[in-house]
């Protein structure tokens, strides 16, 4: 699994870099984008099968400590692989053109509430707890991007080493405020695509994490929302009510 993850990361990272650095023609970039889209589409079904298997294995009892650690690592890698691909696709597309946003009504509170189920296994594997609270809110947005944004926030929070991650959606005066807070651990700073590219070669160990922060910024920018880290333990996404 690790080899697959790393291999894909290197191959796709190369594609992304080629697209960004301007070495490729517009046509080559379009081919890269299509390749990434096809790859992601083709990987969705085997990833589903892997996730279902992980979920089933997690229900079994009687593992020893080593087996439990192995399972936890496998779950994390499946989560990471999915995010890496989705984020790469998004950031690659952004590097060559504005992010296309298709809008429809998205019940943001439902998406927030679903995080409990989406990150239940990863949280348990890290012995962390997810606390969710959301006021009802419909926004005009791209449901796929909203799902990716929320997933990135929670993954970054869990990977920061937090034992408790709190996600809350509130509606203070004509805007919404989505907060993702950790009780311990340090969240990474927001990054632009340009900064990410510049730093990428210096520290490859942070590529997945940094890419997730970049993707959150890209999605917020494309959706007309702001993304900040008012303190090292909190991410905040804010937007005006439609």
């Amino acid at each position: 699994m690790s080899a697959l993850w790393l291999g894909l990361g290197v191959v796709l990272g190369g594609l992304l870099w080629a697209g960004w650095s301007g070495l490729s023609s517009k046509r080559a970039r379009a081919v890269d984008r299509r390749l990434l889209a096809t790859l992601m589409h083709d990987l969705r079904t085997p990833l589903t099968s892997l996730q279902l298997t992980m979920g089933e294995l997690a229900h079994h009892e009687g593992y020893d400590d080593d087996e439990r650690v192995t399972l936890a690592r496998a779950i994390e890698e499946v989560v990471a692989l999915r995010s890496l691909l989705e984020n790469l696709r998004l950031v690659e597309a952004t590097a060559s053109a504005p992010t296309p946003v298709e809008r429809t009504e998205v019940l943001l509170h439902e998406q927030v509430e679903r995080l409990v189920y989406r990150y239940d296994l990863m949280a348990k594997a890290r012995k962390a707890r997810l606390e969710i609270g959301a006021e009802p809110l419909a926004v005009q947005a791209d449901p796929r991007l909203v799902e990716l944004l929320l997933g990135n926030l929670v993954e970054l929070a869990l990977r920061s080493g937090a034992t408790v991650v709190r996600v809350s959606l509130t509606l203070p005066e004509e805007r919404f405020r989505l907060s993702c807070e950790v009780t311990d651990g340090v969240l990474p700073e927001p990054l632009t695509v340009q900064t990410f590219m510049a730093r990428r070669d210096a520290d490859r160990s942070q590529t997945g994490r940094s890419l997730a922060v970049v993707a959150v910024g890209v999605i917020c920018g494309a959706s007309g929302w702001s993304f900040t880290r008012p303190s090292p333990t909190e991410f905040v996404v804010e937007g005006r009510l439609d």
Binding site: R44, T48, L50, Q51, R114, Y117, R118, D120, L121, R144
Partner: peptide
């Protein structure tokens, strides 16, 4: 529900 999904979410 978009693939890939976790079973617990689908069950909910």
């Amino acid at each position: 529900v978009a693939k890939p999904f976790w079973f617990e979410e689908l069950l909910a």
